[in-house]
Design a binder for these strands. Structure first.
Lengths: 199, 199, 199, 199
DNA sequence: TATGAATGAGCGTTCATTCAT
DNA sequence: TATGAATGAACGCTCATTCAT
């Protein structure tokens, strides 16, 4: 944490992260155990906690990094012009976020800043997502009578709801996209989403 | 062989629930210990697990019951005619749901049916809530150009988002109601919620 | 237990035994649970214990019955004339006795009378075995300078030792017969079993 | 990463063992409770299971140690020259082994190696016993026409049989020594053990 | 920085057996 | 006889986190 960050320390920290990534690739986020990581990294348990405040901190880091990777793709891709395309564009990110219940929980838990000056990487990634969506909304063929940022946050709310339901109702597995569509239609283009007979 | 559910069994089950309720009243949901419950109820631990699959099952029951109590109040009270009143009406329920992080987590975890034929009490309560809101929307001074049920589910999404953020941003505690207002305004009465200058 | 043994009682007892046998056929002795038996037999748990002092009593009964079945075969077969044939003749019984560690344990536990007037079925079966072996020893080409009954009990001791070792030393699985041979040779025909260079 | 086995760990492990020994001295093996041991040792339960796989592992250790103590005495004492003295010499060990049914069961359970490379302390102690007996047989006034090791293993078989019967026939308590005598006589000195009229 | 032994506190489990009805 | 709810008493386990060295 101090300035003359020793090369050894950086190396250890990097090894821990890489090892964790490898473990996750094999067994998933849920099954990751600190024990396993330090064992594979050839490091003592205490060392782990010298580098990361707690297990959660590492997880937040790794999950946020993965989200950022998908956000990179989003940003370089074409801006969706309608809700259908919007949903389609968001799918890779949602797929990751709902891949494991544990991942979704971590994201939820860190979806806001814990403290003003302490915005975590996941909160940053989500903020980046909202701004991206807001940008799309402002530029695309969506309603113009409301703050794009407010609309984008609403989209986030609908996404979260759809994803949460994805973990329950095991059998009646409505695809995320299908579940999301009517909400976004009404939210983003109210004049076209009208369908009083729904359901 | 049949299912007479002997009165003794019912009595024991009731005693366990009542005892748990008493403990919670004293120390909260988070601090509830199975050990404590059985001790106070004067019942063997094995008996507890004969009546409830695990601690979580009991918690789901108790939390759902508490939600239902608040829903009873909602249903008997006057139907809110505008978003502001709606939020105000929903506050007691949201206050309970966000009173303890543990409670909110349990609710999230059980917010949907685990299986088709196995809808838990919390999922039922939430369903009841959505239907209630839909009823209000249909009857009140809200937009009429969309399915009330869809609108109600949207309200639920906004509520969840607001409540989730409540647990983060510990210091910058924006009141739930304040956070919720702009979303509901735009969602339920789009013509009045217009405020492109927000934030 | 009293005299006018009611037909219903006999029927229930029989059903319990038959059900237990069926369960054992499927899952083995070790995995037998009273719960499972009464459930399948369509009888209450308490009824089980009205018919059998405890689970052990039923097990003793069933295991002894199985042993007796093998003893029937032994008795009707030809009398072994040498140790090799003797071992071979005993194999079916030993195979059963070592099929499950639990079975072996039950047999050991009941290998003697618990009380003078209370010789259990397993002790009886073992007694029958010893007498049978003694008969063979007396009639066959074995040493004649010692009490056949003493010799037979010795055989039993060697059998038990060989069977016990069978459960350990998982990998170095010496066949029972091989393990037994040198002991019986020396015990039953000392003049031919001489092999000071063994091992 | 290497296996320095810090002194602190050794100390804790030793304290656990010593505490267990103290508890056993007071209440016996059967009544030993893990809970009690960790409480008295002032150690967390998790620590216990970090040092011993389970309660059984500790028991095996302690029982084997006790057996070894008696074996020490055996080895330093005079070599028995006849079966009667042999039995007498073995008595302290047999007394310990049959002192509690639980102890005898543990010994039986661990009497052989579970795996080739994994010979437990009890199996080692029993092996030591057999070798000791074999040594006596080779040196003493016993039959010389058979492998002493084979003879010693036979002695072990007779001991086991006698001890097992000790737990049954509760009332007709024939002394171990008496039960053992005729077998050892015939096994170790066939020419003198002849007594066709036995029983 | 690094080490790794120790912590901790409660959960879920087991399942033969008993006993009031 | 039959019922089945209730018992009981420990065990094993979990595993992120701390702390003395």
């Amino acid at each position: 944490m101090n300035d003359p960050v020793q090369p050894r320390a950086i190396k250890t920290r990097t090894r821990l992260q890489d090892t964790a990534r490898a473990v996750i690739a094999e067994t998933g986020y849920t099954a990751l155990r600190v024990e396993e990581v330090v064992r594979r990294a050839g490091v003592a348990k205490g060392t782990f906690f010298a580098h990361f405040k707690d297990k959660d901190a590492l997880m937040e880091l790794l999950i946020a990094a993965e989200m950022d990777r998908r956000l990179d793709t989003l940003e370089t891709g074409p801006a969706p012009q309608d809700t259908e395309t919007l949903i389609h564009t968001l799918m890779p990110l949602m797929t990751f976020m709902t891949g494991e219940r544990y991942v979704f929980d971590v994201i939820l838990r860190h979806s806001g800043a814990a403290a003003r000056q302490e915005i975590g990487p996941i909160a940053l990634a989500l903020d980046r997502l909202v701004r991206q969506i807001a940008g799309w909304i402002a530029a695309g063929d969506f309603r113009r009578d409301a703050d794009p940022l407010l609309l984008a946050e609403g989209v986030q709310a609908f996404m979260a709801q759809a994803m949460a339901l994805n973990f329950c109702a095991l059998h009646e597995t409505i695809p995320l996209a299908t579940r999301l569509a009517p909400f976004l239609a009404l939210w983003l283009k109210p004049e076209t989403g009208l369908d009083p007979q729904r359901r």
